[in-house]
């Protein structure tokens, strides 16, 4: 049974990478219908990754101004020589 678990883990990776062909995709989906363990894992990881994809945190207010004020004024040598 260990081998079978490894087989479906690989298949799940293929599906999540978007590398599975139509028949592998189908095989994986039918397996999810039968195997509660794989289904729970797949749903949990998909949920987390979806959350990550849709998260939209923003830099704090005033961030750009803070960066700009941290930059040195004269960076290039020819400016210093004039």
């Amino acid at each position: 049974m260990g081998c079978e678990k490894e087989y479906y883990d690989n298949l799940m990776n293929k599906v999540m990478d978007g590398d599975a062909d139509a028949s592998e995709q189908e095989q994986f989906e039918s397996h999810l219908g039968e195997c509660a363990v794989c289904r729970a894992e797949y749903e949990a990881v998909s949920f987390l990754l979806d959350e990550l994809e849709t998260s939209d945190l923003h830099a704090p207010v005033g961030f750009t101004a803070a960066v700009m004020s941290s930059l040195p004024y004269q960076k290039r040598k020819f400016h210093l020589q004039t």
Binding site: S55, D56, L57, A59, P60, F63, T64, L71
Partner: peptide
Amino acid sequence: AYEGIVDLFKDKIFQ
């Protein structure tokens, strides 16, 4: 000109 770059990427980098 660097200000535009910071504005463009600040949310991504902060995130």
